[in-house]
Simulated scan of single mutants.
Amino acid sequence: MKFGSILQACRERAGLSQEELAEKLNRTQSCISKFEKDKRIPDMTTFMQWIQTTQTQEVAVAFLYGMDGINLLQQMMPLIGGLIFFV
């Protein structure tokens, strides 16, 4: 699994466009695109801001422990959707 794919999935899960995330992270849309296409690797500060902004801390933990972040997102979406529905 490529790191950029995980970042993209986190952004999409949060419902943010590349432009919106770029604004929140004080980056350019081009920079966000490069991260997502694995043409650039974010530093730890940027990675943590990305995770906090997209509220995907569980994906970061899974990735750092060597788990498949995309698979984790797919498994959690029905649960999260159900929780939001009942709140």
Rank of each mutant, 00 (worst) to 15 (best):
M1D: 07
M1L: 15
M1E: 07
M1F: 12
K2G: 12
F3P: 00
G4P: 07
I6C: 12
I6S: 05
I6T: 09
I6K: 04
L7Q: 05
Q8F: 00
Q8S: 14
Q8E: 06
A9M: 02
C10N: 08
C10K: 02
C10D: 01
R11F: 01
R11H: 00
R11Q: 07
E12K: 13
R13M: 10
R13T: 02
R13V: 06
A14L: 09
A14R: 04
G15K: 12
G15P: 10
L16E: 04
L16R: 02
S17M: 12
S17H: 10
Q18C: 06
Q18A: 09
E20A: 03
E20D: 05
L21W: 04
L21S: 11
E23N: 01
K24P: 00
N26M: 04
N26V: 05
N26Q: 06
R27P: 01
R27C: 05
R27Y: 10
T28Q: 04
Q29R: 12
Q29W: 08
Q29T: 15
S30C: 03
S30I: 07
C31W: 01
C31R: 08
C31K: 00
I32K: 03
E36Q: 03
E36Y: 01
K37D: 07
D38Q: 13
K39W: 10
R40G: 01
R40M: 02
I41G: 05
I41H: 06
I41C: 05
D43M: 00
D43G: 06
M44G: 11
T45V: 15
T45C: 06
T45N: 10
T45W: 14
T45A: 13
T45S: 13
F47D: 01
M48S: 13
M48C: 09
M48V: 11
Q49E: 08
Q49A: 15
W50T: 01
W50V: 06
W50Y: 07
I51R: 08
I51W: 09
I51Q: 08
Q52W: 01
Q52D: 13
T53M: 00
T53F: 07
T53H: 04
Q55G: 02
T56Y: 00
T56V: 03
T56A: 04
T56E: 03
E58Q: 14
E58C: 07
E58D: 12
E58F: 06
E58R: 11
A60L: 09
A60K: 11
A60D: 12
A60C: 12
A62L: 13
F63V: 11
F63D: 10
L64G: 08
M67N: 13
M67R: 12
D68A: 12
G69Y: 03
I70N: 09
N71K: 15
L72R: 14
Q74I: 14
M76H: 08
M76G: 03
M77W: 04
M77A: 10
P78F: 09
P78M: 11
L79P: 09
L79F: 06
I80N: 11
G81N: 00
G82P: 02
G82S: 09
L83F: 10
L83E: 14
I84N: 11
I84S: 07
F85V: 10
F86Y: 14
V87R: 15
